[in-house]
Design a protein around this nucleic acid. Structure first.
Lengths: 339, 339
DNA sequence: ATGAAAGCGCTAACAT
DNA sequence: ATGTTAGCGCTTTCAT
């Protein structure tokens, strides 16, 4: 448990000053003799010296770390493939540029007391929020007051958040594409969409996209709410729906997991897909292709969203301000065989 | 872009010394008048002061951060539900104890040059490795030389890694359970298992578990290798296998994704599951239940593995040494309807 | 080409 | 009960 060597140890061993060691470590080559550099590098190797990021950060006031707060009630916040891909995109982009990603899963009511908020340890924050509109606004207000730049994913822009950027996918257009595809494939008069209990900007956009197309073609759209994180709750909602009305022409899940769960219920009722009814999901994560029939859905650019968010925040750090307040990525149709 | 307030600003505003502010921030209550504390707290609120973790870390030489290196060739390293759940378990446990998780996806050949290895910024490391046995050993050697404690997931213990702990699930026993279940359900003579091209300790354990049971009952076990991260490669391998031999009694995937992909191929060949052949997977992630029929598999305690890893490493930090060099968690059978 | 020295924000031992 | 002070490991300006 010997204490790790510091820059002083290296300097002593190489017989130079710490300033010189620092230059070698940071690859500042101007004004340094080749022999000195070699001697220093040898000392570094011999001692197994690793520069401390803490010392450097204190000195430079830059931490080269971005915080990612995933505000979610569920402990398995990373179970959602959307989040997972988002985080993968984020870290990959950041890692490649020498930045770290400090990951925190935070329960909604704990955000205020979380380390990320209470203490200062990152250059900027990324967040995916959850909860009601009011809750989300209050989180955004809280983050704004931190005086740190931040990026939120999948939220609508909030004007009062000055030093913030809103990165999201075009859920509305994705839903429009899906709705049009459905009406191409089948003569539908009635549709039902299973959505989460809480309102959620991305979901509202999807509903609004479906509604626009369906209204225009006089297709009715029922909304059924359930706890979308619980497969039991989805099943119960689907069962209840089937019990009180004849099957509609198409079932829409707010995401793939919901659609797939509903599809299982339909199967148990011997309702054929796509023979009797159509089913579609949203986000197109790989497992949606494993279903029978493969799910018709729309591809979420979650990984790209993460990369973009990372790029946007690094640019913000360099430029001193966000160049754009909002970024929107396209969502493309994935024609399975369930419609 | 005003510089954030420091402890000095708070001290000045409250008319006390920085030492007093520090005590308030760190909730050290002995020897402090109530009025002083209130004044300090007010100043903190007024200024929006957030203590800098960097300053504190430099002083205490503790960073309260654990690094997690996911060594994987694929950029979507977080796509695997095993990894995802593992990371969720890790962060949740760490967050609850005031520790952060610094996440890095690292390509195998980049580990040596990664920030996590080159510089010192965390109290300890966690890793999931990949690659050949030789590669893995070289990574473990590299990590050992860092002189930092580390935990590896899903690897077999390596004696030379002194300050390390090996946390894994009992893949072998899981496979044994699955194999016995298969032989209960159907009279099998031939089985085939689809596994990744690279050898991988967890997979080797699974193969060995199946082989033990099957050998005993004179069931043959073919091994087919493919790039398990590519659905096209799995399909190609399955097609090739079906082209050169009659369907065996049971298809085994090294994980759920592989099994499900093979199941799709069987369907296209009009081979019924479980009528004509049985299929089983491994890890039991939620989507395996969406398949038709629901997949028979074995439940990976990935989330618990993450929690355990976090607990083990925090204990190591406190105690100064790992109490055990290895931890193994059980893997339970999930009887679907595919066998 | 190299070094001396100041100071980043904080804590903790010691002094008052 | 509160304050003074000495660094923690590093970078960077200014001297030499």
């Amino acid at each position: 448990m010997a204490k790790p060597p510091t820059i002083h140890a290296v300097a002593a061993r190489a017989g130079v000053s710490t300033a010189t060691v620092s230059k070698v470590v940071n690859r500042i080559n101007v004004g340094m003799s080749e022999t000195t550099r070699q001697r220093v590098e040898e000392a570094i190797r011999d001692l197994g010296y690793r520069p401390s990021r803490v010392g450097r950060s204190l000195r430079t006031l830059r931490r080269s770390t971005i915080g990612m707060a995933i505000v979610d009630a569920s402990p398995s916040f990373l179970a959602d493939p959307f989040t997972t891909n988002l985080v993968a995109g984020l870290t990959n982009h950041l890692s490649a540029r020498g930045f770290g990603l400090l990951l925190h899963g935070i329960k909604p009511h704990e955000l205020r007391d979380s380390v990320l908020v209470r203490e200062s340890e990152v250059d900027a924050l990324c967040v995916t929020l959850s909860g009601s509109r009011r809750d989300r606004l209050s989180y955004i207000k809280l983050l704004t007051e931190l005086g740190q730049p931040f990026v939120t994913f999948q939220d609508q822009p909030v004007a009062s958040a000055k030093d913030a950027c809103f990165v999201r996918q075009d859920d509305r257009a994705g839903a429009v594409g899906l709705a049009r595809y459905i009406l191409e494939k089948r003569r539908a008069k009635r549709a039902v969409m299973f959505i989460s209990e809480l309102s959620w900007p991305a979901i509202e956009q999807r509903v609004s996209g479906f509604r626009d197309v369906f209204d225009d073609k006089r297709v009715s759209l029922d909304l059924v709410r359930c706890d979308e994180t619980s497969s039991a709750s989805i099943v119960a909602a689907a069962e209840a729906y089937l019990a009180r009305t004849a099957p509609p022409d198409v079932f829409i899940g707010q995401n793939d997991q919901v659609a797939l769960t509903v599809m299982q219920v339909l199967k148990r009722h011997n309702i054929r897909v796509p023979g009797d009814v159509g089913v579609c999901g949203f986000n197109a994560f790989p497992f949606s292709g494993f279903a029978d029939p493969p799910l018709t859905t729309a591809r979420s650019p979650a990984y790209e969203l993460g990369q973009l968010g990372a790029a946007v925040i690094l640019d913000r750090l360099e430029a001193g301000h966000f160049r754009k307040r909002e970024h929107v990525l396209a969502v493309d149709l994935v024609a399975g065989a369930s419609v």
